[in-house]
Every structure is written in structure tokens, then in C-alpha cells.
């Protein structure tokens, strides 16, 4: 169990790619699963999606949004992550559906990369939408070449269509008959895409980025209401049919520690100064 950073690369401002050495996780991980990192003693446990595996390594792509992710992005090659647990969560339901639309928004693009590969491998025809704020934030574009069609959507129109991903999704659904959709990205994006899917009576998998502590079903902090039942995102998910998710309570729970998160980041920046490494 080494957990050393074999390779690190900056993909966009505050978005960093890490290849971590860990033979167990790299061997066992399936698309849709995640790991939990604790960077150092005293650190918090944060969930990160496994974005790919290769040999003894697995890949995560991290967006710096708060103290722990700022710290993680500050690590260099050959540094170690103190604790890495995984693979966790139920893998994506990969099977032959026929025609699939896969949408990745922002760093969610990292999460859809292994899913798109797996879907194509079992014989699906996959159309992919890569969506982000702007051209610079579209990551891993090269990895989606095997898609039937590759579409781009940016908020400012600097690449592809000047549309929100749910808008582009709606447009494509009218042109092409899809059997299932995947949408992974910010919660609001997944919610919007789920609304479109609901209107068109289309199954849509979303990957919920709930707040977690242990990630093994022990605390229920990541609970989410799916139809009428409480589910634990870490063991029952993280993927659910977006049409069944109670989005309002999910979004509320995501903002639970806003004040604490802000305070932790401010304290950290007071110590380290300008985050020039982002």
C-alpha cells in the first residue's frame, strides 16, 4: 500500500490530475466507484471518483474548492497520501443498452471517462457531451475519441455550443433516440438533466457527490431520499436514477458546512498565503 503520487499534472486552473500507486485499488476498481482520501494526520476524509486505472495506479482528478483540495493540489510527485480507502460504492450498471448519451460537466468529465470506455467496450454506441464554464475548463478531450459523436457545451460559447448541458441534452434527445443517459457533474447540472430525462421518460444515471465521512455505510451522513426511501449514497450509490432523487433536500444537505468550509479555507490561506500552486 504505497499511495504515492506517481504523476501529477495541472489540467486547468485549480484542476489537477494525480496518478496514485495502489495495487489493490487499481486492480479492483470498476467504473462509477470512488476512493476516500485522508491526506495527513488530522485531515478530513474526502471522497474522490476513480477516473481511470493503469497497472498499479489509479487516477483521480481534483478541483480545488476548499482547504483539503487546496492542500491536495499542493502535493507534488513522490509525496504520499496518508490514507486511501477503496474502491467504494456500487459500480455503474454497465451493459448493452444500445444508444447512450453521456454528459460530463466540469470535473465530472473525469468521472465519465471510465464509464464511456466501459459502455463502448460492451458494444454501446455512445454520444458524449463535455460541458464546462469555458474552453479552458474542458478536460481530457482526447479520451473521448471513440464516442460516436462528441459534443461540447460551454457557458460562454468559447467551445462548442453556448448552452447549458441540459439544454444541449434536450436538443439531442429530439434528434436521436437514446436508451439511457448518464449525467455527472455539479449537483445543479445533474438536477437539470434529470428534469429533462423525466419529461422524456428516459432513464438517467447521476452520480451523487454527497458529503461523506466513512464512505462505508456506517454513519448515514450521505443519506438521500430516493423516491420514498432513505438510501446511503456511499453504499447504495453513488449512482441513482436522477428522476427518483429528491434534489431539494440533496442540495440543502450539500451546503451543510458552508460556514465551516469557509472558515477552514480562510485559516489555511492565512498560514500559506496566496495559493500560487493552483
Amino acid at each position: 500500500m504505497l499511495n504515492n503520487i506517481v504523476k501529477k499534472e495541472k489540467l486547468a486552473y485549480g484542476v489537477h490530475l494525480f496518478w496514485i500507486e495502489n495495487p489493490i485499488i487499481s486492480k479492483k476498481a470498476k467504473p462509477g466507484q470512488f476512493v476516500i482520501f485522508r491526506i495527513h494526520e488530522g485531515g478530513e476524509r474526502i471522497p474522490l471518483t476513480i477516473s481511470k486505472t493503469k497497472g498499479n495506479m489509479f487516477r483521480v482528478i481534483v478541483k480545488a474548492v476548499g482547504k483539503s483540495t487546496y492542500e491536495l493540489c499542493k502535493l507534488k510527485e513522490n509525496d504520499y497520501i496518508k490514507d486511501v480507502v477503496g474502491p467504494l460504492g456500487t459500480p455503474s450498471e454497465i451493459k448493452r443498452y444500445g444508444r447512450v448519451l453521456v454528459i460530463g460537466g466540469g470535473v465530472g468529465i473525469a468521472a465519465i471517462a471510465p464509464i464511456v470506455d466501459a459502455l463502448i467496450n460492451v458494444g454501446n454506441k455512445v454520444d458524449t457531451i463535455l460541458a464546462a464554464r469555458n474552453k479552458e475548463s474542458i478536460i481530457l478531450e482526447d479520451e473521448f475519441k471513440d464516442s460516436e459523436n462528441l459534443y461540447f457545451a460551454t457557458n460562454d460559447g468559447s467551445k462548442g455550443e453556448k448552452l447549458f448541458p441540459n439544454q444541449l441534452m434536450e436538443k439531442l434527445i429530439k434528434e436521436e433516440k437514446y436508451d439511457v443517459v448518464w449525467a455527472i457533474g455539479p449537483a445543479l447540472m445533474m438536477k437539470a438533466c434529470s428534469e429533462v430525462a423525466k419529461q422524456h421518460n428516459l432513464k438517467i444515471f447521476v452520480s451523487l457527490n454527497a458529503i461523506m465521512v466513512d464512505g462505508t455505510g456506517m454513519c448515514g451522513g450521505c443519506r438521500v431520499r430516493i423516491k420514498d426511501t432513505l438510501k446511503y449514497t456511499c453504499v447504495d450509490g453513488p449512482e441513482f436514477d436522477g428522476r427518483d432523487v429528491d434534489w431539494n433536500s440533496f442540495l440543502t444537505r450539500l451546503s451543510q458546512y458552508k460556514a465551516e468550509e469557509k472558515k477552514a479555507l480562510e485559516n489555511y490561506l492565512k498560514i500559506v498565503g496566496e495559493p500560487t500552486w493552483l
Binding site: 478530513e44 483539503s68 465521512v213 454513519c219 448515514g220 465551516e260 477552514a264
Partner: peptide, 25 residues
């Protein structure tokens, strides 16, 4: 859940936030 509250406090030492990174409400 008590499990979550106690895990945050005991295992993650949230009572020492922000010296430790895990918060608790």
C-alpha cells in the same frame, strides 16, 4: 445519526476544528 456525530468527534476529532479538518455542527 449518533454514529455520524460520534465518528466526527471521536475518530475525526471534530471538537478540535479547525485544528483538525473535520467540522461538526
Amino acid at each position: 445519526s449518533a454514529n455520524e456525530f460520534l465518528t466526527r468527534i471521536n475518530l475525526m476529532k471534530a471538537y478540535k476544528f479547525p485544528e483538525y479538518d473535520t467540522p461538526v455542527k
